[in-house]
């Protein structure tokens, strides 16, 4: 289906879609006001689960990937039930620890191949499948956003206390959002491992977390369109500019994140920011007219 783009571009799109799934995973948690700093660890968990199941137990890739998603969701559930009692910032720190712990332990134990990782894993994930998954995920996000649940989530984000008072169970919403977020990250890991055929702990590093956070927050957490568009735009841009994989790229991502958080804390898709900008421009124009 994507043959006309050429081999290189096809791979690029394939990888971008997997990253897109990860972005959506973080976004889902953020819809409930949770900062999930474990997506990279969850991705690793799903990737290794599926890889080990297909290589050692000989199950099919479909079963492996589904098992990867399910077990990662289960892990997220086990973590979230006790830790969700805490204030949000503790949850964020705990999720960071969880994500790092997964990667460190994978690199330390024997049956995962240690630091060398695994290879000769069955391959073959059609890009069409990824497109469908991303589209379905976006559609689901939009449907949830417009539903009762979506308004409940928005209320939790705005003012948790008031939302609780109005009968929105923040705990339950957050639990479900985090488990789905974990399962999706696990799925993206499984899809990644069956696209590359190899997996090693070193690919799940801190830089990837920063990249994902940049996409989500520069795009804005209010609406899923922002992060999805920003992910696509940045991936296209960095191809054109030729920054791929250089140190400058890391600096650009870091700076982009800092500047966005300082100037447009709700991300670029925040309508309030554009309104402010518009009114400022208008005021300037009117001042000019008045001066004339």
């Amino acid at each position: 289906m994507f043959d006309f783009l050429g081999y290189y571009n096809a791979i690029l799109i394939h990888q971008s879609l997997i990253i897109g799934l990860l972005v959506i995973s973080v976004l889902i948690a953020m819809q409930a006001g949770l900062l999930n700093l474990a997506p990279v660890g969850f991705m690793a968990f799903g990737a290794y689960t599926s890889a080990l199941l297909t290589v050692e137990a000989g199950v099919s890739m479909t079963v492996g990937a589904l098992a990867g998603a399910l077990t990662t969701g289960l892990l997220a559930l086990l973590f979230a039930v006790p830790v969700l009692r805490l204030r949000g910032i503790y949850f964020a720190m705990g999720s960071l620890a969880l994500g790092q712990a997964i990667v460190v332990i994978i690199g330390a134990v024997e049956f995962t191949g240690g630091q060398l990782g695994l290879n000769a894993i069955p391959m073959g994930v059609p890009t069409v499948l990824l497109v469908v998954l991303v589209v379905v995920a976006c559609a689901a996000l939009e449907m949830v956003r417009r539903s009762y649940v979506g308004r409940g989530l928005a209320a939790i984000r705005l003012d948790e206390r008031t939302a609780q008072g109005l009968g929105v169970s923040a705990y339950r919403y957050r639990l479900v959002a985090f488990v789905i977020s974990g399962a999706l990250a696990g799925l993206s890991g499984a899809l990644d491992v069956h696209s590359n055929g190899t997996v090693a702990p070193s690919q799940f590093d801190f830089g990837l977390l920063v990249v994902i956070l940049t996409y989500v927050l520069v795009g804005g957490v209010g609406h899923w369109v922002g992060p999805v568009l920003v992910t696509a735009a940045v991936i296209v841009l960095r191809e054109w500019v030729g920054l791929l994989g250089t140190e400058v790229e890391d600096i650009v991502y870091g700076l982009l994140l800092v500047v966005t958080m300082v100037l447009a804390p709700q991300g670029l898709s925040d309508p309030a920011m554009w309104r402010r900008l518009k009114s400022k421009l208008q005021a300037k124009r009117e001042a000019k007219v008045a001066a004339v």
């Binding site: 949000g88 956070l213 890391d250 600096i251 991502y253 870091g254 700076l255 982009l256 994140l257 800092v258």
Partner: peptide
Amino acid sequence: EFSYVIVTIGLALVLET
């Protein structure tokens, strides 16, 4: 509270690089 975490994560990557 999250804003500080995110902004300093970005800054950390820049300084380290």
